[in-house]
Design a binder for these strands. Structure first.
Lengths: 158, 158
DNA sequence: TATTGTTATACTCTATAACTATA
DNA sequence: TATAGTTATAGAGTATAACAATA
């Protein structure tokens, strides 16, 4: 396999372990994204919209803060929020402490979708590892968590 | 953490192990996709284009076959191939066995980019697991490979 | 009739650049 | 001046539907 998502074996004499891991990671990422998009589609949402709702479950950030967190430009986020607002999923609330800024918050409906979506995502991910034993799942979670323990990875909405 | 990609802890009393695994998988998928997009951007490609080149390294499929493999509509792939062709990365070759069909093939330049891209992707994935020991990396590759061993998962370009 | 591919159309997502308002 | 947000513009990616050519 390769980063191509191929299942057919590459014509290469026994791939080294790094390329095996690379293929597994890449393939996994596409499969997870595909499943996330499917969950979103069940609610007639795009993946970007579902992700937005998920972020807002625990935060009421401004546009720029949201942009930093999502790794997007603020203008992109402005549009994302526009569309979500037009669909009644989120609202812009003015920020009492800073007249330039806003708080993006979930509407009642947005919150409901976020909650249902999270459940569905959990189910979709559970299905993905259905071939693993409980112990293996814990091992996998542990390995992935540790792979992410790099303190200089940019993220966080804290 | 949640499927939101949050790093900030959710206000929940010790999440169950499924949600921990869910979060890890979702977070990983976004991070891998981010890195893939970065590699693509180094060559002024989108992730979709890089993925297309990767697939074509070992295959010369028709549009429909490509669509099945990528999980896209044939019209979407037609456009994807249009843009890649306009950039001199791929070519449509007529199929001698079926006048309706084509073979999508890499150009010399496309092949070169695909090769370089694959190297870069391997490096990017290697960086991602830099915190894991060699043994852990093998374990991770094994777990992911086994998670994917579902025979009814749709894929394959064989 | 069924399949392969293209085209027309529409929408989402994203970025860059220029702008307004506030700090 | 610097920051937060919006708007204008452009392009990629994707889907649905209708179409043409071939099987």
């Amino acid at each position: 396999m390769s980063y191509t998502l191929d299942v057919a074996p590459r014509k290469v004499s026994s791939p080294d372990s790094q390329s095996t891991l690379t293929d597994a990671l890449v393939q996994l990422s596409f499969e997870v994204q595909r499943r996330l998009a499917n969950v979103a589609a069940e609610y007639d949402l795009s993946l970007a919209q579902l992700r937005l709702l998920g972020v807002l479950r625990d935060h009421q950030p401004g546009i720029q803060r949201l942009a930093d967190h999502l790794g997007l430009e603020k203008s992109s986020v402005s549009g994302l929020v526009d569309r979500a607002e037009a669909r009644g999923l989120v609202r812009r609330i003015s920020n009492a402490d800073d007249g330039r800024s806003v708080h993006v918050t979930l509407s009642r409906r947005g919150r409901s979708l976020a909650k249902q979506g999270e459940r569905e995502v959990e189910e979709a991910m559970s299905d993905l590892v259905t071939h693993l034993t409980d112990a293996d799942r814990d091992r996998l979670a542990d390995l992935l968590t540790r792979a992410f323990s790099d303190p200089d990875r940019p993220d966080g909405l804290t």
